[in-house]
Design a protein around this nucleic acid. Structure first.
Lengths: 238, 238
DNA sequence: ATGTATTTGTACGTATGTATG
DNA sequence: ACATACATACGTACAAATACA
């Protein structure tokens, strides 16, 4: 986006990330920021609300806005990111994707129900990808994709980035996701695809991902070797 | 709070929860809601933004606001809740808390660092609680609490609800938390406290919980038997 | 302890831009 | 081409919490 409040949000966030504002510091007042960025109070407050929602500042009536998190890795899990986007922030590690399957198939009853398909329109893309981190097969991602929304796919696209293709080539807007984290027992097939060592469990992140027009286009089961799994979260009490 | 926009937010949320607005329905336009609730557009938009942030509606320029989630259990994990608050929504199950320890002790170096205590002020409350669900010991919660913020505690308080005490008796405002989810191996001691069956792993939710004045008052390790663990999340792409 | 200035929170208004149908 | 609906951006006024002299 190129709205003014998002632009100012990014300017202030940069100052937090590069250490100009440090944890515990108080931001300039909204009035000062208005002058600094030549913006109305409404615009400044929208920028600050984004910072607050994303866990960077704590606003306090009468006091000001205090920096509470300058962790540059914070962003990785507070939102929807493709594996490629997350991987680009994992420094010093060798990361690659192996596409095992990318098939145009008929959905079974469970997937038909999840993706809200009917009997006459039940073709999906079935994708299996293994994520290799420092030469260990750590994550197995299985995707079920509505083929009436994403009509064309191939191994090359999904070995690079599915989201990049959807957003930049198809010009669709990925908007929100419902996620569910739980434990599963690996099947023999999953064992064969992952370097599972002696672990006898997997952490599964189940995601339903939606476009801005509320269409569900993707159902994903992301299976993680337990020792490498980590999920960060920022929450506010209401 | 009793601000107008929060009041309207709750009125609309009630209509979503009780089925007056259903998934896929379009809300009345902002202009219509202005008249209905006798409020300005700014106020209505604040109410709708809350609904959007919490995963109940999807706003779309030119179209309107569409209901995307009427799941009344949705709220349980999108925020900070005490075990008592969560338990009150688990129907048909017997839920109880067993307090194993509630001690005023000296913090070790790790906890001193986490809670930002110094050598002259390093006393904490150490609490061990087991959560019993349908007569099985499923969760072991271990709390390390800054005793200079929460001065007085006892077994009775922590067997009821720590948050209820902090908010209603001490009148402190619990505001936000950083959470981290990962896997651990149970120690013999943890095995002895939980009905762990043949599972050889635990899911640990590590939380740092802060007051509205940015003071960190609580560090918690919540250890879950893997088969009973479930974490729900709603995320938006930015 | 008190009053005053500062700072954020809420509520209302107006105008214009942009996407949708 | 037009009406509708949400998005952005400017403004004003007053309330409430906090800090400080």
């Amino acid at each position: 986006m190129n709205s003014k409040y998002e632009y100012i949000y990014n300017l202030i966030l940069d100052k937090i990330r590069n250490g100009f504002f440090k944890e515990g510091d108080t931001l300039p007042s909204e009035y000062t920021l208005m002058k600094e960025y030549n913006a109305s109070r409404d615009t400044i407050r929208k920028s600050l609300q984004l910072l607050s929602n994303n866990g960077y500042i704590q606003k306090s009536k009468g006091k000001g806005s205090i920096i509470i998190n300058s962790d540059i890795y914070n962003f990785e899990f507070n939102g929807i990111y493709s594996f490629k986007e997350v991987a680009s922030k994992i420094y010093g590690k060798k990361v690659e994707t192996i596409v095992h399957k990318c098939e145009y198939i008929k959905a079974d009853n469970f997937i038909k129900k999840v993706l809200k398909l009917n009997d006459n329109n039940d073709m999906i893309w079935y994708i299996e990808r293994v994520r290799n981190i420092d030469n260990e097969k750590i994550i197995l991602d299985i995707d079920f994709i509505n083929s009436y929304i994403i009509k064309t796919l191939d191994k090359k696209i999904v070995s690079n980035s599915l989201y990049e293709y959807i957003e930049n080539e198809l010009n669709l807007k990925i908007s929100y996701a419902e996620r569910n984290i739980f434990c599963t027992f690996p099947t023999d097939y999953e064992r064969s695809l992952l370097d599972i060592n002696n672990y006898n469990m997997l952490i599964t992140v189940e995601s339903k991902t939606f476009l801005s027009d509320t269409r569900l286009f993707q159902y994903t089961l992301s299976n993680h070797r337990p020792d490498k799994f980590r999920f960060k979260d920022f929450a506010r009490r209401r």
